[in-house]
Amino acid sequence: MGDVNFKNRGELVFETLKQEILDLKLEPGRLISENDICERFGVSRTPVRDALRLLQEQGFVETIPYRGTYVTLLSLDNIKQMIYMRVAVETMVLRDFLEVRTPMVMEEIRHAIAMQKALIQTPGFEPEQFYRMDAQMHSLWFTAVRRQKLWDMLQAQQLHYTRFRMLDFITETDFTRIIGEHEDLFERICSRDLSGLEESLKDHLYYSMKRMRRSIEVDYRDYFEEEPEEGRFVI
């Protein structure tokens, strides 16, 4: 019985720290103190070290000899390639979706957008709530064309892309604009405007990279790995 509890404690530390890294509550480059974690969770060093080892294996933290364990920095190149891949994949999915859409799933999309509007009118809402609602809406057309595994693969790219999207939402104050883009996508789906839909999706997914240029270069510079001069902001 003790082994089960021990394992659960280690898993709890791992899952909690991983989610806090994804939500940017533990920022890129942040030093993680074993002592602090032991005290916070009321556990010994062994489950904490096991959790940190798993986080390191998955790329969420790195241990620098004689310095300590740090949350890994974001790779802008990785993020750019993920956006490129998502645009390519989601464009194909939406193309298929126009052929199989049903009144039921269209109503689900309409409802998802309505829920986003309701959320941003709620005092003190958290950016991660909006992030999850946004992701849930996009997943609807993947599910409708039986490409849920593709969506899951895109979502699994958490180390850099998910954290970048969270940073996007944390620094975004105009959530109404994002919802407006969702409404535009919905209208183009309704009118079966394929070329307009593909252009809107591309603008929607790339907008954050353009909007956050100053944040990436100045305000949150310490969150990102140093990038080769020739590779900067080529999207």
Results as ranks from 00 to 15, higher is better:
1 M>K: 13
6 F>V: 09
9 R>L: 08
11 E>Q: 15
11 E>H: 14
12 L>R: 11
13 V>Q: 03
13 V>W: 00
13 V>K: 02
17 L>D: 02
17 L>N: 05
19 Q>C: 04
22 L>I: 15
23 D>E: 13
24 L>R: 00
27 E>V: 14
28 P>T: 08
40 R>Q: 13
41 F>R: 02
41 F>A: 10
42 G>Q: 01
46 T>F: 08
47 P>V: 00
48 V>Y: 03
52 L>A: 03
53 R>S: 13
54 L>C: 13
66 Y>V: 11
67 R>V: 00
73 L>Y: 02
78 N>P: 12
81 Q>S: 15
83 I>C: 07
84 Y>G: 12
87 V>R: 04
90 E>M: 07
91 T>Y: 03
92 M>K: 04
97 F>V: 12
97 F>M: 08
101 R>T: 05
106 M>Q: 05
110 R>S: 06
110 R>L: 04
113 I>K: 01
115 M>W: 04
118 A>Y: 08
120 I>T: 00
120 I>E: 02
124 G>P: 00
127 P>W: 04
129 Q>K: 10
129 Q>L: 06
132 R>M: 09
144 A>F: 00
146 R>N: 10
147 R>S: 08
148 Q>C: 15
150 L>S: 13
158 Q>I: 10
162 T>G: 09
165 R>H: 10
166 M>P: 12
167 L>G: 03
168 D>A: 15
169 F>V: 06
170 I>P: 11
171 T>M: 06
175 F>M: 09
180 G>E: 04
183 E>K: 06
185 L>D: 00
194 L>P: 00
196 G>K: 01
201 L>N: 03
204 H>E: 04
205 L>M: 10
212 M>D: 06
214 R>W: 05
217 E>Y: 06
220 Y>D: 08
221 R>V: 13
221 R>A: 11
223 Y>M: 06
228 P>S: 07
230 E>Y: 06
235 I>A: 14
